[in-house]
Amino acid sequence: MNKRNFFASIILIVLCGCYAYFTANLETRNIQNTTQPSFFPWIITGCLAILSFSLLLQSLLTTKRQTLKKKPAPRDLIIIGFLISLAYLLLLPVLGFLGGNILFFAGLSRIYGEKNILKICLFSVIISIFIFYLFRNVFQIQLPIGILGGVLT
């Protein structure tokens, strides 16, 4: 059995079930000789169901074990990266793009192997400020400043 495909097919079957449930609850319109808003989603549901069950069948019949082509990235680094990104997303509306990006840059820079704290601080501040001003002042994209607003304006 191909465990990865089996796992994928189960997730897709669940997704298909949820999608079918929401499709069945879509609003209908009383217009003659026309297709309803749920028409296309029902076709997709059918395709998704057929393909997911095909994958399930294929995974049960396959004996060959899948091999990964690339060397996988270190799991601990991925988890740390994910946590940094999550914290960044949650704090972004408060910290704004400038403060948030400096911290985000510093965190990622450390994950990508930079050990020199001075270099991390220097690059994260310089690059974040440069990008922020480039987009805000040159491209006129209103990036929120967040709590640093009082300091900068």
Binding site: L89, L92, P93, F97, N101, F104, F105, L108, S109, R110, Y112, G113, E114, I120, F123, S124, I127, S128, I131, F135, F139, I141, Q142, L143
Partner: peptide
Amino acid sequence: PKAILMPTIAILCVIGSYALRNNFFDVY
């Protein structure tokens, strides 16, 4: 170094998705 290049790309991706509609929702 990738330690500079990759975080820069990550920041540009976040700004790129925000700038589409000036909306944090797009970043998420």
